[in-house]
Design a binder for these strands. Sequence first.
DNA 1: TTGTAGGCGTTATCAC
DNA 2: GTGATAACGCCTACAA
Lengths: 335, 335
Amino acid sequence: MKTTIKDIAKLAGVSKASVSRVLNGSKPVSDDIKQRVLKVIEETGYKPSSIARSLVSKKTNLIGLLIPDISNPFYSELVKGMVEVANKHDYNILLLNSFHDPNKEIEFLEILKDKQVDGLIFMTDNFTKEHINFFKDYDKPTVTVNRKLKEYDFPNVDIDNFKAGFDATKYLIELGHKRIAIIRAPLSDETAGVKRFEGYKKALEKYNIPFDENLVKEGDFKAKSGFISTEEFLKLDNPPTAIFTVNDEMACGVIKRVIKGKLKVPEDISVIGFDDIPIANNFIPSITTIKQPISEMGKKATKILYNMIKGENIVNKDFLLPHKLVIRESTSKKD
Amino acid sequence: MKTTIKDIAKLAGVSKASVSRVLNGSKPVSDDIKQRVLKVIEETGYKPSSIARSLVSKKTNLIGLLIPDISNPFYSELVKGMVEVANKHDYNILLLNSFHDPNKEIEFLEILKDKQVDGLIFMTDNFTKEHINFFKDYDKPTVTVNRKLKEYDFPNVDIDNFKAGFDATKYLIELGHKRIAIIRAPLSDETAGVKRFEGYKKALEKYNIPFDENLVKEGDFKAKSGFISTEEFLKLDNPPTAIFTVNDEMACGVIKRVIKGKLKVPEDISVIGFDDIPIANNFIPSITTIKQPISEMGKKATKILYNMIKGENIVNKDFLLPHKLVIRESTSKKD
DNA sequence: TTGTAGGCGTTATCAC
DNA sequence: GTGATAACGCCTACAA
């Protein structure tokens, strides 16, 4: 049978209250008692029950983490940063994977609420009324990553996606490219579907390059969709000389298709990705990309959440971390 | 204030016990009471506290998951399979990431114990006496993946690594290769350091190809170590015509270095990887590899754990799932 | 079938 | 300083 605080009290010849006090230092205890209690604890290897504690303290030391797909390198890197910070502060991560299913997201939010996590980090593809509704009566600290929920003022960790899209496009323009294609995310994706796309358009506009609807495709973040979109681009009378994809995996697919067409990257077509996941550097050619500080974003989000749990009042809710253009082999001057 | 069972009882005009009964169906309840209680629950949106429940039931519906590195594609894919099965059975995943640090592993095992998870899935690079010691007085259901702990009889989900190493090597031999190098894991790694390596040696032996110590390097699963090892191989008077790496990421590094040396894959050097993570298929050239059913392994492990939690007695403790040679572009006949 | 009472392992509020 | 004792929210004998 597991030893409880009661056993310790009995063995040390003191009251439960005293044991609790030496355990938590909540009130002064005489040295005599302290030593006796400590000794018994040592001998028995007693550990207080975190569950019983939670019941009275209303704290679980759990952080709920809801993400769309843990097997996606972007998310797994993010999670890595999160668990590191969480564990450092003695918090643990309850991981829920929604598989991009909005219904599951709601269901899992309910579970997280049921488990009484002390805080919540939440990522979704797009917000629905059900999400909005859930948060109506959820009062635990919550932070989002990569998605700003307009209806609530949750702190959000992100990069400046508009500027990032602008920078990527501008770089291609400066290399001399004029026919620049983009494979963006669906427009329901505020970040990779809208903002980066707007940055792209803004750059074209600024440098007086006409926007061409034929040079825009929608992808699903998988390599295959980059491959397929590129196939379409190559059929054009006036195909692009550069392609910008809103994540690195699609860039892989793009390159694969370009090479299959007996063309070369970057000589014939330059390719620029987004995120800078490990494959971007390992690919052949290595991929020029917009680096997101993924792990840092995970850490930052967790740090903020931790501070909120500790009662800190977050004033500025938008945390924009710096992105960076990482130049590698997949881009070159247009001659 | 949160509504409790007491509130429900009062509102429905019955005892807490009755409410509990309709909640759990633990004992028959009259239709009248049942309806009244259900109605109040509906109106209030009452949800029983899982913490209070855990305190009395000694069950948390939590599965502890301890892995070395969530950002490694192999583990993240594994975890994906695990969360899927866990959630299906109404269990949640408490995720601990050890960052390959044995001390953290022990520390986290203690945390998992403290959190009173109902079961444990556990992966480590290698077992130490501290691990052995921890499990001495840990009695919750436990399963391992990819690592057999000899001292305890935990169910283990794995592939036949000896046979897999043999198959990979045999395939290269059948293609006509005689100078076959291997980049294995450290020998402390029973799976990728020892067994696959033994399979490699066995294949050489069977086909009367002399074993050459110069064709063996030790890697750390990262692309870079594949790159560096290959550099060494290329310096040999009699360099290999084929290289077998015990994971796919190292294979990427190998290919990168081969190409940098103005040689071609597979024309000059064939490369075969291991695992079949997504990059293996997306790489250029796509990588021939030994496919592990990663997601399946995660599902299987979780399923077994679930059955154990439910009281099932597992007799056969070794669960070997089938691996498969996936032939792609990185290997070809030696002429 | 139903309700009362006690207990799960802590912490917190009192008196002393 | 210290020790009863009452919560925390739920389940489960035990009686009725």
